[in-house]
């Protein structure tokens, strides 16, 4: 028989009352003279509509969003400029050089982006291969040197190669952004060792850009100790982008806190959690 007057768990911890987070020792992400409290940067491409994009960006807690530079469609058959929907006061705009295959082309796009008049930041990407969209690291480095010399704050998309990452840092990039896996692949973090090594060896923030597919990828990538994540497709093409943006916000934070907390060592044999003493005779 059930006692309907007995206290239920939901009476003791009323639903809707948030459990306070443990005091966090995390610091803001300092990059290029700016301070960001969110470690998640989102792209603005591929959303079904602008309203969904905006709701997803807000749900993600991001402060910085990427945009692309393209010709105005004079026939107006496709989308209009994103600034009709996105307030640069609400989100820090990070223009990219997506779609560029040479250093010269990327430099041209970066200059056009800066001339828009918002800031001197650029997400530099120079693609080397159409199938994998893997970066041309030589062209990326060449473009980075020129753009840094022109006063740009360069966040450089690169592969998970330590030597290239070190060279990009030497070139003066404000952030180096190795991939987790190819752009738009959603394969997650394929090489945690290389990402950890890059993070350990660089002074500038390491933001993992591309390849995150779902929240567990975001969390496990942040658990490597990197400074932040940049993603687009995983949120934009989710069945419910706003829910996925929320999941990514929580996962990025969870991974960060887990890394700061310091994980237990892995062991190949079991160790009991309950006392071995005091068992019944």
């Amino acid at each position: 028989m059930t006692d309907t007057n007995a206290p239920k768990a939901s009476d003791r911890t009323p639903a809707g009352v948030p459990v306070p987070d443990a005091p966090s020792t995390d610091t803001p992400l300092e990059m290029g003279g700016h301070s960001f409290s969110s470690r998640l940067i989102l792209g603005t491409g591929k959303y079904a509509d602008n309203e969904t994009m905006l709701r997803a960006l807000r749900a993600s807690g991001t402060e910085m969003v990427t945009v692309a530079v393209r010709r105005v469609d004079l026939d107006r058959t496709t989308e209009e400029g994103i600034l009709h929907h996105l307030d640069p006061e609400e989100f820090f705009l990070l223009a990219n050089t997506a779609g560029c295959y040479t250093a010269d082309e990327a430099i041209r796009y970066a200059r056009l982006a800066r001339a828009a008049g918002f800031n001197e930041w650029i997400k530099l990407e120079v693609i080397g291969d159409r199938r994998t969209l893997l970066p041309d690291v030589h062209a990326t480095l060449e473009a980075a040197k020129v753009l840094v010399g022109e006063g740009f704050k360069v966040m450089a998309y690169t592969n998970d190669d330590l030597i290239t990452a070190l060279r990009l840092e030497d070139a003066g990039c404000v952030s180096v952004m190795p991939l987790a896996s190819p752009i738009g692949s959603g394969l997650g973090l394929v090489n945690p060792y290389y990402i950890r090594e890059i993070k350990d060896r660089l002074e500038v923030p390491v933001i993992v850009d591309a390849g995150v597919g779902t929240a567990s990828d975001a969390c496990s990538t942040m658990e490597q100790g990197v400074d932040g994540l940049l993603m687009n497709t995983a949120v934009a093409v989710a069945d419910d982008p706003v829910a996925m943006a929320t999941a990514m916000r929580l996962a990025t934070r969870a991974g960060r806190l887990a890394w700061l907390a310091g994980r237990m060592p892995k062991r190949e044999i079991a160790v009991p959690s309950s006392p071995e003493r005091g068992m019944l005779g």
Binding site: G43, T44, G45, K46, Y47, M53, T66, V67, A68, V69, R70, R71, V72, L74, E79, G81, I82, L83, L93, A95, N96, A98, L112, A113, A116, G117, I183, G184, A210, L230, M231, N232, T233, A236
Partner: peptide
């Protein structure tokens, strides 16, 4: 931008008009 009103277009000019669109 401050020169848009003063630059007269010349025969054969090639212009690119660009703006920001959604991208990752």
């Amino acid at each position: 931008r401050e020169r848009y009103a003063s630059v007269t277009l010349e025969e054969g000019d090639t212009l690119e008009l660009v703006h920001f669109v959604g991208g990752g």
